[in-house]
Design a protein around this nucleic acid. Structure first.
Length: 413
RNA sequence: GUGAUUGUAGCUCAGUUGGUUAGAGCGCCUGGUUGUGGUCCAGGAAGUCGCGGGUUCGAAUCCCGUCUUUCACCCCA
């Protein structure tokens, strides 16, 4: 058990072998998939001006209001990014015309000061994409398809996609007014939080987990019904396009996504293996105004920590991706040790995974090590072999071994 | 931020109402005739009992504080 001084901060963790192998698998497959869709990688700084997040996520949202790591080292108040979209759009907005029609992805750590639990870290990691461009239901559908493809590429099964719409910006007020009016008669029956939410953030009443609130919400019209015909048609087109691609989604008007920048399509992907924190990915269409420029786009993010939990439930575990195979060199005597150092370098130069014991250990110990690292073959050299310029090559699976010259070994490697 | 919860060898965990040198399994190390792994057998190393304080003749065990884990709320990926 590590004592305190060796522990990372609360809610942060060191990611090491063997877990790291599933992380790398996910990253590699994500990069390959994004490449096939024509997305370029973008790495933005962890630190941004606080205003980047305030203006895009909304300065009344919990993420901005109470969960940010922010500080003021000089003139500007800074914050560590709590999500990837704001910084990405900050960057794209600066690229002018081409930034308004860009396809980028990121794989990066994010920071939120929350009470940690499994699948909710203070430093957590997301893979996400942003595709900027005017609202287009096909772009939204393609984004969801890409996200689904990403989960598939990892072997993540059993997730559910829930879809809804925020409508156009001009729908906001009618929705808020409509919901307030509809909830008015039930106000006293709502939970304490919801009575407050009616005025502060009426959308939050819709996804309240309180049973009696749920019953009331079931009786009133959904938010979508207060939106314009155009907004509803947009949603229908997204659903239609997804259906053509064979992607199953559930339209859930009660799905609420908190960040202010969302317009039109919003969605969330959940997995039953995750408990109450069951959302492992989300996404939506947005319009983010930075300065005079409003950047429209659509994007998604997937949380690594949560996706990994879901993957474990699917039987996808880190040790399946641990590096194995290669060659292990066994040295008997000082001369062999020196010669094997040279041979190892030659094999490694050919890209072969190659290991050896650098201390004088018994053959038994060296063989055990070879077995443990999963070597396919072992090359054994002692004084006799060095003198003759040969080595014993043992196949670990079969247990057979034969003598080869070093030239042969290097040639066949 | 609210209310709970966890912490004993590298890992998973035992440890009875406070009582000698804190245990197990797995892993690790060393042997089991000369230079041969995975199975088996024998032996061995390894623990500030999260940390700090207190109560007591005596604390892994009781009390307080603190850090950390997990769970729910909240929020979100």
């Amino acid at each position: 058990m590590a004592s305190n001084e060796f522990q990372p901060l609360q809610g942060m963790s060191d990611i090491q072998a063997p877990e790291i192998h599933v992380w790398r698998m996910m990253e590699e497959r994500a990069r390959a998939l994004f490449n096939s869709y024509g997305f370029e990688e973008l790495r933005t700084p962890v630190l941004e001006k606080l205003s980047v997040f305030q203006r895009s996520l909304g300065d009344t949202t919990d993420v901005v209001k109470k969960e940010m790591y922010s500080f003021k080292p000089s003139k500007h108040e800074l914050a560590m990014r709590p999500e990837g979209t704001a910084g990405t759009i900050r960057h794209l907005a600066g690229r002018g015309e081409e930034g308004l029609n860009a396809r980028v992805f990121y794989i990066a750590p994010m920071f939120r000061y929350e009470r940690p639990q499994a699948g909710r870290k203070r430093q957590f990691h997301q893979v996400g994409v942003e595709a900027t461009g005017e609202p287009n239901p096909l772009a939204d559908a393609e984004c969801i398809a890409l996200q689904k493809g990403l989960l598939d590429s990892w072997g993540l099964t059993g997730s559910k996609i829930q879809l809804s719409t925020r409508g156009e910006p001009s729908d906001r007020q009618p929705v808020v007014d409509g919901l307030r009016a509809a909830l008015q008669p039930f106000e006293n029956a709502l939970c304490e939080d919801c009575q407050r939410r009616i005025d502060e953030n009426v959308l939050r009443v819709i996804d309240c987990k309180n049973e009696s609130c749920k019953k009331i919400v079931d009786q009133i019209p959904s938010a979508i019904e207060f939106m314009s015909d155009a907004s509803r048609a947009y949603l229908d087109q997204v659903v239609g396009a997804l259906d053509k691609m064979g992607i199953e989604v559930t339209v859930n008007p009660k799905l609420i996504r908190g960040l202010d920048y969302y317009v039109h399509t919003v969605w969330e992907i959940s997995h039953s293996a995750l408990g109450a924190q069951d959302a492992l990915a989300g996404g939506g269409r947005y319009e983010i105004a930075l300065g005079k420029k409003a950047v429209p786009g659509v994007g998604f993010a997937v949380g690594f920590e949560r996706a990994i939990m879901a993957l474990e439930a699917c039987g996808v575990t880190a040790d399946q991706f641990a590096p194995k195979g290669g060659v292990w060199l066994v040295s008997l005597g000082e001369a062999a040790l020196a010669e094997n150092m040279k041979l190892a370098a030659q094999l490694r130069a050919k890209g072969i995974r190659c290991g050896m014991e650098l201390a004088a250990k018994s053959m038994k110990a060296q063989m055990r090590k070879a077995n443990r690292v999963g070597a396919d073959s072992v090359i054994i050299r002692g004084d006799d072999e060095i003198e003759k310029g040969v080595a014993m090559v043992k196949d670990m699976a079969e247990g057979s071994q034969k003598e080869s010259t070093i030239e042969e070994i290097l040639r066949d490697a």
